[in-house]
């Protein structure tokens, strides 16, 4: 599979549309995910994306067929899961990690039950297979999906720009932010909501199971190249976009049965591997080279 095959694939307008959508959602997830990773909340996205499933199913059972309604349903239940995790963490002695894991499994289980119920009892369910949302099939992105991705993505990025200073302070020194009078809980909620929105735009192309990786991987890769927040967020968005587009094309070339969510995640993981090895300041490859040189000369 050479360069020609990639170019040929990009020449079909369907693939181009799909790759564009995947790039847009990758950019959104990357930029928003950078904050989640910096705040050590990488696994929040995991919970949100799994917990989106029951909301999707409920929206579908209530008659929603428009992607915007399904995404809204998913976002609401993902958000609800995080709120419940917060309540359990504050009001009981169950540790945070157990609350996260439990919420993930319970919501996902409920979603699976509702999804199978819908498939067996809703007459037109076979024309709108919900199980595509599990692993994602970017090939089925339609113009309506692209509008949802574009709209939500732009809104999320605009909010990041608008609250740049606040989010920066919240990420690096939340105590100071609270001391100087920023509404920390509100900002925290806003950032959480942005995470939910970033997950929601990726549901159809990447799927609920693996969407978390698109929040974490580009950010972890970008972090290896810079210590400045602005560059990390920009690079993270860029890596996300490249992984989205590249993974979609790779999935297309691999054949019809391969879902695109995993190929996008593998593309993002490749970016992480390269960054961990060759990041300018802390790259593992440089460390190995140095130790070899020391052995030779010392």
């Amino acid at each position: 599979m050479g360069v020609d095959a990639v170019l040929e694939a990009l020449n079909t307008s369907a693939v181009r549309t799909v790759a564009l959508g995947a790039a847009a959602l990758g950019a959104t997830a990357g930029a928003v995910g950078a904050f989640a990773v910096l705040r050590r909340q990488s696994l929040q996205g995991d919970v949100v994306s799994h917990a989106a499933l029951p909301g999707l199913a409920v929206a579908f059972l209530l008659g929603g067929r428009d992607p915007a309604w399904l995404v809204l349903g998913g976002a609401v239940s993902g958000w609800l899961a995080l709120v419940l995790v917060g309540a359990v963490n504050r009001r009981s002695r169950v540790p945070l990690d157990a609350a996260l894991g439990g919420a993930l499994a319970v919501f996902f289980g409920l979603g699976l039950a509702l999804m199978t119920y819908a498939q067996r009892h809703v007459p037109d369910a076979s024309r709108h297979p919900l199980d595509r949302y599990l692993f994602g099939q970017a090939a089925f992105l339609r113009d309506a999906d692209l509008r949802v991705i574009g709209g939500l993505g732009l809104a999320a990025l605009a909010l990041v720009g608008l609250f740049w200073k606040e989010f920066k302070l919240l990420s690096f020194d939340p105590d100071y932010a609270a001391t100087v009078g920023y509404p920390v809980r509100l900002l925290d909620l806003l950032l959480t909501t942005l995470t939910v929105a970033a997950v929601a735009v990726g549901l159809k192309a990447v799927g609920v199971v693996l969407m978390t990786a698109l929040l974490v991987a580009p950010a972890a890769a970008a972090r290896q190249w810079s210590d400045r927040l602005g560059r990390v967020v920009l690079l993270s968005g860029l890596f996300g976009a490249v992984a989205g587009a590249g993974g979609t094309v790779a999935g297309h070339l691999a054949g019809a049965g391969v879902p695109t969510g995993p190929t996008i995640v593998l593309a993002a993981t490749a970016a992480v591997a390269v960054s961990l090895l060759f990041g300018p300041a802390r790259g593992l490859a440089w460390g190995w080279l140095r130790s070899r040189r020391d052995v030779v000369h010392g």
């Binding site: 990773v37 050590r40 909340q41 990488s42 696994l43 996205g45 995991d46 199971v209 693996l210 978390t212 990786a213 929040l215 974490v216 991987a217 950010a219 972890a220 972090r223 290896q224 969510g261 995993p262 190929t263 995640v265 593998l266 993981t269 992480v272 961990l276 990041g279 802390r282 593992l284």
Partner: peptide
């Protein structure tokens, strides 16, 4: 390696292998 935090390490490794 101290290049990524523990939670991010979990969030990187298992989705990659699962994918």
């Amino acid at each position: 390696t101290r290049l990524v935090k523990q939670d991010a390490a979990v969030g990187l490794v298992f989705p990659a292998l699962f994918a």
